[in-house]
Simulated assay, not measured.
Amino acid sequence: MIVWGEVHTERMTSRGVLDVREVRARVRRTLVGALAGDLDGFDLEDVDLMVCEIVTNAIRHSGSGRPGGGVWVTVLVSRERLRVEVQDDGGSGGRPVIPAQGAGWSESGRGLMVVNGLAERWGTLPGPDGRFTVWFEATR
């Protein structure tokens, strides 16, 4: 069982299209603050990339990409592990999945393959009103 030392949840939205860079920067600031600068062992560049991929997918494939759309971001931190959860605004028509093998040359669909390759663990959770949460964990 994991006991999370800190949990931070925030709704991020925009009048226009949600800014992926701002979400990434806020997650980074939250992690730095929650870990009080003790970042040794965590690869925050990988965390940044995974956040970008998941938020981009939410914008492209759900109501999060509409004007005024957004995401709920939750950051959970323990001494040895961190977890980031991103919940979209729904309307995607299906659960986020890694594309079938052989789709690697398409212009889209690689985001969850990146998350799968970098995360210690990751997954999806169905939520209310057709919303989905995509989460990942990283360890020291």
Rank of each mutant, 00 (worst) to 15 (best):
I2Y: 04
V3L: 12
V7D: 14
V7W: 04
H8F: 07
R11V: 15
R11L: 14
T13D: 07
R15L: 12
G16Y: 02
G16M: 05
D19K: 05
V20F: 12
V20C: 04
R21E: 08
V23E: 02
R24E: 09
R24I: 11
R24S: 11
R26N: 08
V27W: 07
L31A: 04
L31N: 04
L31C: 04
G33E: 05
G33I: 00
G33F: 00
A34E: 03
A34K: 10
A34H: 02
L35R: 09
G37F: 11
L39M: 06
D40E: 08
D40L: 10
D40V: 14
G41A: 06
G41V: 09
F42Y: 03
F42E: 01
F42P: 02
D43V: 09
M50Q: 10
T56W: 14
T56K: 08
T56V: 04
N57I: 02
N57P: 03
A58L: 08
A58D: 06
I59P: 02
I59F: 00
R60N: 09
H61Y: 15
H61L: 14
H61G: 02
S62R: 00
P67Y: 07
G68T: 07
V71Y: 11
W72D: 15
V73C: 02
V75N: 14
R79W: 10
R81C: 01
R81T: 04
R81E: 08
L82H: 08
R83V: 01
V84G: 10
V84D: 07
V84W: 05
E85R: 14
V86K: 12
V86C: 03
G90Q: 03
G91Y: 00
G91Q: 10
G93F: 13
G94F: 12
P96N: 00
P96M: 03
P96H: 10
V97Y: 11
A100N: 12
A100M: 10
Q101S: 13
Q101F: 06
G102F: 07
G102M: 09
G102N: 10
A103Y: 08
A103C: 07
G104T: 03
G104P: 00
G104Y: 13
E107I: 13
G109R: 05
G109K: 12
L112E: 11
M113W: 13
V114K: 01
G117C: 08
G117D: 15
E120K: 15
W122H: 10
G123I: 07
T124I: 15
L125S: 12
L125I: 12
L125F: 02
L125Y: 11
D129W: 10
D129I: 08
D129V: 06
D129P: 03
R131A: 14
R131G: 04
R131C: 11
W135F: 11
F136Q: 02
E137L: 05
A138Q: 05
R140P: 07
